[in-house]
Simulated assay, not measured.
Amino acid sequence: MASLSAAVPHLVNSQLGFDRSADLLRRNENFRCSRVQIHGNFSGARGTSGRWTDGSLCSRQSTKRKVLTCATSKDAEKSFQKTVEVDRLIDMLRESTSKEEKIESSTDVLKSVLKPVIHGDGEIAWPPQDPMALVSMEREMKLRDQEGQLDEGFLSEVNAQLRQAKEDGDKPGLEAMLQKVLQIYASNVLSKRTYAKRGNEVLEDERFLETLIRAPETSWNKILIDGLNMGKGNISPEDLYAVIKKRIERTLIRTEGGSYQQRILVEYLQGIELRAKEIVEILQGNRP
């Protein structure tokens, strides 16, 4: 492909050079013909008209060269057009192959992420019996994230598998596992940026939210009870809701509209808000 692409500018340059050479050749022939014709006129004035034959011969030779030049130019143009068409075809094939490899690599990445929590016989048990299995899955996701492999293709694959698991209805373990993958992804991405400090000042409500973002979903209840002023802490529910709303707005600005990443991050923050409201209701005695 590289050699073929490189050949295109070469063909263009060759064509331009050929046209210039042909132009110079035509000018030279016209100049020679003019000289012979002038000399013929001069000789005719002296009574010797034999030189006129040289002028007509020069004209025939010039015409023949023009025909050859035109034919060669058309051949070069046809060759150039064919080269461009082949170049475009190869680009289309390479783009198509790249998309296929993208889908395959996203599937392979997901398999690697889930491998620590899937038994050798292919059975899925959730939560994993081995606590280290979940740690290994989180470690694999961080590694893949550093390599730039947790992209839109990966998120699309996870969502497709999750949607299929929900439709089947007989794989609750797989559904919970895929939900966990999305939670870990959102936690890792949102934790990369902190808003808990303004100069030397520590913003307690922002820090509290970031504690929830980094924590696994199973720890949210305890963190909320210990942190909210209705429980053991000093953060009001209104302050928590306000910083969650602000973080959602920042996420919408910093992510591509309609992307899987945007949807997953926003849903994760909304999940924290929903859990906080549930805990508030329980602490207020409005729920059993």
Rank of each mutant, 00 (worst) to 15 (best):
P216T: 11
N200G: 01
K102F: 13
P9T: 03
K115V: 01
K171N: 08
T69Q: 13
S219H: 10
S187H: 05
L143N: 07
V243F: 04
Q179W: 02
R26Q: 11
E273G: 11
D108I: 14
K111A: 10
N221P: 02
E77N: 07
T218R: 13
T48H: 14
D75T: 13
M141L: 13
F18A: 15
P116A: 13
Q261N: 11
L182M: 13
S236A: 12
L240D: 00
N13Y: 04
R60K: 14
L11F: 06
A76G: 01
K246R: 13
K142P: 02
D168W: 08
R254G: 05
E77S: 10
K180M: 04
Y195G: 04
P131Y: 13
E281M: 09
I124C: 10
I248L: 02
P128A: 15
V181A: 00
I272W: 03
M132V: 04
D145W: 04
V135M: 09
D23C: 10
T63K: 14
E147A: 15
A45R: 10
I282T: 08
Y185R: 00
Q161L: 14
D75N: 12
D54K: 12
A125N: 12
L89M: 10
L114Y: 02
E204M: 09
R163F: 08
I90T: 06
Q284H: 07
K102Q: 15
N221V: 08
A160C: 07
L68Q: 11
S21K: 12
S236F: 01
R27L: 14
R198Y: 09
K142R: 12
G120A: 14
D151P: 06
Q15W: 11
R214G: 04
E157I: 10
V109M: 09
I235M: 06
K66V: 03
R207Y: 04
I282L: 15
E273A: 11
K64E: 03
M177R: 01
S259N: 05
L209D: 00
F18S: 10
L190W: 02
E101Q: 15
N159P: 01
N30V: 13
R88G: 01
A196Y: 02
E238Y: 04
Q262C: 04
P172I: 05
T69E: 10
A6C: 03
V181N: 00
Q61H: 09
